[in-house]
Amino acid sequence: MSYVKVCPLAEIPADGALGVEIDDTPVALVRSGDDVYAVNDICSHAEVSLSEGEVYNGTIECWLHGSCFDLRSGKPTNPPATQPVATYKVKVEDGDVYVSLGSDD
């Protein structure tokens, strides 16, 4: 599994998100407490940027219609979204955030 260096951890707001592109894939880097997650940045319901939404209780909320997605699984926790968003592996080393878009299944 290959990881790509994306940005310094300090660029991601505390309990917030940063939208980035990795190999033409829109990714929302999300800090929730001390954890960092990466999910596809496009809401599965309305195709708007999730990184512009609110982060709370381990979820990110789509700003348009209010669907929340679990940062661990990508699954929606409430309607109107019914489809999950992709999640990606993240690691933080020496203050930098690395993401792997590949699956290790």
Results as ranks from 00 to 15, higher is better:
47 E>V: 01
15 D>H: 10
32 S>Q: 07
47 E>G: 00
83 Q>N: 13
56 Y>E: 07
8 P>G: 14
15 D>M: 00
59 T>S: 02
80 P>V: 02
57 N>E: 14
77 T>W: 09
41 D>C: 09
72 R>S: 01
47 E>I: 05
50 L>N: 04
27 V>Y: 06
65 H>E: 02
53 G>I: 14
36 V>I: 15
32 S>A: 09
8 P>R: 15
43 C>E: 06
76 P>E: 12
56 Y>N: 06
51 S>A: 13
64 L>H: 14
54 E>W: 12
97 V>N: 04
99 V>S: 09
15 D>V: 10
99 V>G: 14
45 H>L: 05
58 G>N: 13
2 S>Y: 09
43 C>W: 03
58 G>V: 13
101 L>W: 10
52 E>W: 13
54 E>I: 12
88 Y>R: 03
95 G>M: 04
23 D>T: 07
96 D>Q: 15
14 A>Q: 05
88 Y>V: 10
64 L>C: 14
6 V>C: 02
63 W>C: 08
8 P>W: 11
14 A>I: 02
52 E>M: 09
4 V>P: 00
8 P>V: 06
60 I>S: 00
80 P>I: 04
30 V>K: 01
90 V>Y: 05
15 D>Q: 12
96 D>E: 15
86 A>W: 01
27 V>C: 06
58 G>C: 11
62 C>I: 04
77 T>H: 10
62 C>W: 10
90 V>R: 02
56 Y>V: 13
34 D>H: 08
40 N>M: 01
63 W>L: 15
98 Y>I: 11
99 V>N: 07
5 K>T: 07
12 I>V: 14
88 Y>P: 03
69 F>A: 01
5 K>C: 04
45 H>I: 11
97 V>C: 02
94 D>C: 08
45 H>T: 12
105 D>T: 07
12 I>H: 12
82 T>K: 08
49 S>D: 11
2 S>Q: 14
31 R>C: 02
5 K>W: 01
19 G>N: 08
94 D>L: 02
94 D>H: 11
5 K>H: 03
18 L>W: 09
60 I>M: 04
66 G>T: 07
57 N>D: 10
91 K>I: 08
11 E>Q: 14
3 Y>P: 05
98 Y>E: 15
11 E>L: 10
63 W>I: 11
96 D>F: 13
90 V>M: 08
67 S>D: 05
4 V>L: 07
34 D>T: 15
104 D>L: 14
15 D>K: 06
22 I>E: 01
29 L>E: 03
97 V>A: 13
98 Y>W: 15
9 L>K: 09
16 G>E: 09
45 H>N: 03
77 T>I: 14
64 L>N: 14
19 G>Y: 10
29 L>A: 05
89 K>D: 14
32 S>C: 06
79 P>M: 14
57 N>V: 03
80 P>F: 09
47 E>W: 09
43 C>D: 04
37 Y>F: 15
105 D>Y: 11
24 D>F: 03
86 A>Y: 04
60 I>Q: 01
33 G>K: 13
1 M>Y: 01
50 L>A: 14
93 E>I: 10
52 E>H: 12
86 A>P: 00
82 T>F: 12
58 G>P: 10
101 L>S: 03
62 C>Y: 07
39 V>N: 08
68 C>V: 10
80 P>Y: 05
5 K>N: 10
104 D>V: 11
82 T>P: 00
53 G>M: 13
103 S>A: 14
105 D>L: 11
45 H>R: 00
97 V>D: 07
105 D>F: 12
65 H>D: 01
51 S>N: 12
26 P>E: 01
66 G>S: 01
